[in-house]
Design a protein around this nucleic acid. Structure first.
Lengths: 180, 180
DNA sequence: GACTTTATATATCGAACTGATACTATGCAT
DNA sequence: ATGCATAGTATCAGTTCGATATATAAAGTC
């Protein structure tokens, strides 16, 4: 399950350009599977090369050609094979937690700043999810609703945990503050 | 905050070989910031090159030389600069959620298998955290205890959410099962 | 006694991904 | 008039991932 597969899955919903897919990665997948142009364009090129998608170049005045991709029969087969993984991974890469593990090398003020920013980030992302879910024109399938609820549950747990445990770092007793 | 910085942070706790650091990445950082040999060895080489760590090669009979790394004065400075980031990131890359977003292309049985494996994975990781926290010889600093509690809170929220929402996929009505 | 797994220890390599940047054009707001 | 948002393409260096290779000893299993 890499960027290629997710692109393939998005294309089952209808034709799209690389630009369109980028927007989908930001909105519906932003909280769980991000991808930038540097991943999407090579993925589409590779999918086109192996016949999993077709590409139609639509000329536009001034702007570069708009390349519209569609999933092919072979692409469908490929997608169903990749969706068959019984134990797909769920990975976290947290500079936040890596930083917190070294909180004893930081000042209490630095630590509180980091905790503040994490709470703010969680709140922002909760809002993004709500906006995406409510202000939208279409009816998302159950799976998408599930992922949005999942994101909300995780962000809520994150915010609550940080709020309830930040006092661990408030006293200077637990801090060794740059004493080597 | 990349693998290099985390290695540097780990070395503030005492000298270590690449192998030792790999074990630390698996145990204390396994749930939040994983790294393999393919990241650790180049990171140490790069840190040695820029004078942030020193390296002593200790010959061993039969086995390859054991290379022991120690953080230098310059390494300390570098580390404190990198720990100063006020808003370190927290990223999720979930093949699980990407898969679930396309649940309508899978059979109900496939979906339930995926959900089962996620619950099992969460339970396993909760157990790892408990074992690491209890059965250990040393007193972890507040920061590390914070990250372990954080991991536990997230895994618990994940497990609960999946258990409470898996019925969304039990009926065949929400399933379009490979109907293009 | 033979065999397999686990632990100690090094390291490389291709594929994938990240984040930033570049280019061009229209339209809208300050 | 100058900057920002939108629409659209694409590349590139640096990082990271996951698998693999090499070598030995200890410890457990059949």
């Amino acid at each position: 399950m890499d960027v290629k597969t997710v692109c393939l899955g998005m294309l089952t919903d209808g034709e799209a350009s690389g630009y369109d897919l980028k927007k989908a990665f930001e909105s519906s997948f932003g909280h769980c599977f991000a991808a930038g142009y540097g991943s999407i364009y090579p993925a589409l090129a590779s999918l086109a090369e192996c016949g999993c998608v077709s590409c139609e170049e639509i000329p536009q005045d001034g702007k570069p050609d708009r390349k519209v991709y569609r999933i092919t029969e072979k692409g469908w087969e490929q997608l169903l094979v990749e969706l068959d993984d019984p134990a797909p991974s769920h990975k976290v890469r947290s500079e936040f937690l890596a930083t917190m593990a070294f909180a004893h090398l930081m000042t209490p003020a630095q630590v509180q700043t980091v905790l503040d920013s994490r709470i703010r980030d969680a709140e922002e992302n909760l809002q993004y999810i709500d906006e995406f879910e409510n202000c939208c024109d279409r009816d998302w399938p159950a799976g998408v609703r599930f992922t949005l609820g999942f994101g909300r549950a995780m962000l809520h747990a994150m915010k609550t945990y940080v709020e309830e445990n930040r006092d661990m770092f408030e006293s200077d007793e637990t801090q060794k503050t740059v004493a080597r």
